[in-house]
Design a protein around this nucleic acid. Structure first.
Length: 835
RNA sequence: GCCGAAGUGGCGGAACAGGCAGACGCGCACGACUCAAAAUCGUGUUCCUUCGGGAUUGAGGGUUCGAUUCCCUCCUUCGGCACCA
């Protein structure tokens, strides 16, 4: 039908057939917006602010779907917020330090700085093709000295707060990246490097740590932030808080040993102790007779990889030390063993073993013939037959001195009456106290690499570690460095760089040659965006006061236990140092899913299933790609790419173009047609507004597609040229503007002839009256099956609806003459007749 | 093993107070236009059917006049943690 309208072969039809050439209009508007500084965000106290942040890209050199998918919809929402009266800040920058730059240097002899900044130039160009409302004047690059000067400064502030310290310990080491890693950066059951996938090994090294565990409890509190449950769960599990008691056991060798247990109620059943093989007390408690066996076991445990050691189904092994401890609750003499199922890295590295009520201890006791004494008896049982398995359920305490008869349930910590009572008693007796243990570890920050922010510390033989004086920051990375994958920091091999003087005594001293984990750089980038060139502090307080905190943060969930946890810790540490305010940096978080290849596998060059956004932009335009990414998936889920799917949104945008460029003469539509059009427009506006708030981009696009179809029909019915038509056109383009900013601007400014720019217009207001239906169609069910539909006025009473329903021929037929028992009119949405 | 998320046509998905299952789009089929193709436009498209209707939201059960939606049991997929004392 529409085609017919275009058919008349007069001159008008030639004029109206302007081709939609996205590449032309997109470039044109991007240039104009930039020239007009349309997206420059300036403090304006007359408006509410909205800080929309999307995770900054790493400078890999090429912009892929992993960037487009989170960024384009985030941009649409930022634009929506802006049209809704907010002064919006939507900044961008580059996470520019890191290993790939150094690898490029090793492999191809390109300086990491050259490689990185060349990549940034390309990515900046690619980012601009997206048409986002980024405020480029606030661009921050973490590898710029004016940026990392403050990364170093923050390190010093944390050091001054007692939150940065050095410790010798067995740390995770990636043999491919040749550096240590934080615990979070070792992933999966094979314990591989998060960056390169190589299995990590343990090394005993002295490294810098941040005391993140100080904030463990606070990090478990999400009351102030609107973050997805998934992320909160991941972080909660990662921190791994467990409640119980710490108890001190004396050893016959003299040194007391503290253990942590979540089951103090089973203390009377502790029949032996187990130390981790690496435990420092092992040598003290070992008797001369057992020494050889113990040494052999220790050596074997040290040889084994963590994966071998930590696999749960492995049969438990251990060796008796010959030494004994005294169970403080009943003064029983219990043997001390070592076994590799006890880990030095959790708790105190030693446990009390209660074989009757712990599966691991049970297996161990069985194997080595150690006594098993039940101290929790299931209620209603009394038999004394030997346990066939550890009993971990509820019951009554037995063989437990003063606590015999005390009830124990399956709750943890203080919620369990048995545990609670024993904790109080231990404290009273002075042999133990309530304790909380975490799986969470302090953040290992040292990296044995060149391309990172130097750790601004100086070591002097006399004065130990001292921070570089703040007026000497930044400690600049030297350019003339040799990159060799030696496992030593390249800065260490530099002939002169590390030599300096001690800030305390002025004598010769050396710089720290390790650099910082790049997650340190990204822990505060949202603050640097506020004033990227400010040189008196990491950020301009005026900008901070206006823009912070981040209102909406978007990015991938893969960083739940890394960046998203680090940045929360960092904020709290800065708060305690008096640098920032509030308890949380980012108030609302939303995670997008992942776009997979067409084969439903992760996109990767080796699989050959990579789709390049650049090519799609060349073929369909940025608007079509943006809208397809919003339309095709639940944004928070993602899914496989479908190369034909983008035709759908490209077609839709062409139809939009056709409708707005085809100057149909005014017709004589009926009042009803016009009223219906207006109703659909306002109903759509209502839905689109709601969906923008909720990050439901797919239904925004489908609503706009539906409305376009309605507009085509209304035009056929002669609505063009009417006030209702003009209102529909305006509202349509305004709703389109956030999702497809270029075509909306072109049609608004050059076709409708409205005031430039559409992106500075206000979001339209819903006219609730116009959105209301006059007549409503209700399905009528008889015994739960839809048998007919009736049309009644929207304001019809329940009784009127009931009689209309019963009057229906089809309903009568299915009633088969029987009297209805009940007629339910449900919220004016459905009539249910029950026989 | 523990914790979390999710299962709806050939495909992506919609249904936002428990109330018409399958909106919107992809694909497909047929038709119009064309010498032809592309583009565009139109019609149809969950399955079965004796054309009355029946079945159907991973499976089974429950609550309800009514369940994709709430409850219970189970299955599958994905993600995280995992000898954590």
């Amino acid at each position: 039908m529409v085609a017919k309208r275009v058919v008349p072969k007069n001159k008008a039809s030639v004029v109206k057939n302007i081709a939609y050439e996205p590449q032309v209009i997109e470039r044109k508007w991007q240039a104009k917006w930039e020239k007009d500084k349309l997206y420059r965000s300036v403090i304006d106290n007359s408006k509410p602010k909205h800080y929309a942040l999307t995770m900054l890209p790493y400078t890999s050199g090429d912009l892929h779907f992993g960037h487009w998918y989170p960024m384009a919809p985030s941009d649409a929402r930022a634009r929506f917020k802006r049209m809704n009266g907010y002064n919006v800040l939507f900044p961008i920058g580059f996470d520019a330090f890191g290993l790939p730059a150094e690898n490029a240097a090793i492999k191809r002899g390109i300086h990491p700085k050259t490689w990185t900044y060349k990549n940034i130039d390309n990515m900046r160009r690619q980012l601009k093709t997206m048409g986002n409302m980024f405020d480029w004047s606030r661009e921050a690059i973490t590898a710029d000295p004016e940026y990392y000067r403050w990364t170093e400064w923050f390190f010093i502030q944390l050091f001054k707060q007692g939150l940065a310290y050095r410790k010798m310990s067995a740390v995770d080491w990636c043999p491919s990246c040749n550096t240590t890693l934080a615990r979070e950066q070792v992933v999966g059951e094979n314990r591989v490097c998060e960056r390169c996938g190589t299995p990590v090994i343990k090394k005993d090294l002295e490294q810098w740590f941040f005391k993140a565990t100080k904030y463990a409890d606070e990090l478990l509190n999400f009351d102030e932030i609107d973050w997805p449950e998934r992320v909160k769960t991941l972080q909660t599990n990662w921190i791994g808080r467990s409640e119980g008691a710490s108890v001190i056991f004396k050893t016959e060798a003299g040194e007391p040993i503290e253990i942590f247990t979540t089951r103090p109620d089973t203390l009377w059943g502790a029949t032996f102790m187990v130390f981790a093989p690496e435990h420092p007390l092992v040598d003290k408690v070992t008797t001369p007779q057992q020494k050889a066996a113990i040494e052999a076991y220790k050596a074997q445990a040290a040889r084994q990889s963590d994966i071998e050691r930590e696999s749960a189904d492995k049969e438990k092994t251990g060796v008796f030390t010959g030494g004994y401890a005294i169970n403080p609750v009943n003064n029983e003499r219990i043997p001390i063993w070592i076994a590799d199922y006890v880990l030095m890295s959790y708790g105190t590295g030693a446990i009390m073993a209660v074989p009757a009520h712990d599966e691991r201890d049970f297996a161990f006791a069985r194997k080595y013939n150690l006594p098993i004494i039940p101290v929790i008896q299931p209620v209603g049982t009394s038999h004394d037959s030997p346990l066939q398995a550890a009993y971990v359920g509820a019951g009554v305490m037995v063989n437990s001195g003063p606590f015999n008869g005390t009830r124990v349930n399956t709750e943890k910590g203080r919620k369990n009456p048995g545990i609670s009572a024993v904790i109080d008693w231990l404290a009273q007796q002075g042999i133990g106290k309530e304790a909380v243990n975490y799986r969470y570890r302090d953040w290992l920050i040292s990296r044995q690499r060149y391309w990172g922010a130097p750790i601004p510390m100086i070591y002097c033989d006399k004065h130990g570690w001292t921070p570089v004086p703040e007026d000497q920051l930044p400690v600049l990375l030297p350019d003339d460095v040799e990159w060799k994958p030696t496992g030593e920091s390249p800065l260490k091999l530099h002939p002169t760089w590390k030599n300096t003087t001690c800030p305390v005594c002025g004598e010769h001293a050396v710089r720290e040659t390790d650099t910082m984990d790049t997650f340190m750089c990204s822990s505060w980038y949202h603050l640097r965006y506020l004033s990227p060139h400010y040189d008196k502090a990491p950020f301009d307080p005026k900008e901070y006061d206006y823009w912070m905190p981040v209102d909406t943060y978007t990015g991938g969930i893969e960083h739940a236990n890394m960046h998203l946890l680090y940045t929360r810790f960092f904020h709290k540490a800065l708060r305690d140092a008096g640098i920032v305010e509030g308890n949380e940096p980012m108030m609302q978080l939303r995670n997008q899913g992942i776009i997979l290849g067409e084969d439903n596998e992760k996109m990767s060059k080796s699989r050959g299933n990579v789709v390049a956004p650049d090519e799609l932009v060349g073929q369909f335009g940025a608007d079509a790609l943006r809208t397809y990414l919003m339309f095709a998936y639940r944004w928070q889920e993602g899914g496989p790419w479908n190369s034909q799917g983008i035709d759908g949104t490209a077609r839709w945008l062409r139809r939009v173009w056709t409708l707005f460029t085809d100057h149909t003469p005014a017709g004589a539509a009926s009042d009803e047609t016009k009223k219906n059009l207006r109703r659909r427009v306002h109903q759509t506006l209502k839905r689109v507004t709601r969906d923008f708030e909720n990050f439901e981009f797919n239904t925004i696009i489908s609503s706009l597609m539906e409305l376009l179809n309605e507009m085509y029909k209304a035009r056929e019915a002669g609505a063009a040229g009417s006030p209702e038509w003009n209102e529909a056109s305006e509202i349509y383009l305004k709703m389109l503007a956030p999702v497809a900013p270029h075509i909306a601007e072109e049609l608004w400014t050059n076709q409708l002839g409205k005031t430039y720019s559409i992106h500075q217009q206000s979001w339209p207001k819903v006219d609730e009256d116009a959105a209301k239906e006059d007549m409503i169609e209700l399905p009528v069910q008889v015994n739960g099956k839809v048998r007919d539909r009736i049309v009644v006025p929207a304001e019809a009473s329940e009784d009127e609806i009931k009689s209309a329903a019963l009057a229906s021929e089809n309903v009568k037929k299915f009633l088969e003459g029987k009297e209805p028992k009940k007629i339910i009119v449900a919220q004016k949405r459905l009539v249910s007749v029950v026989v």
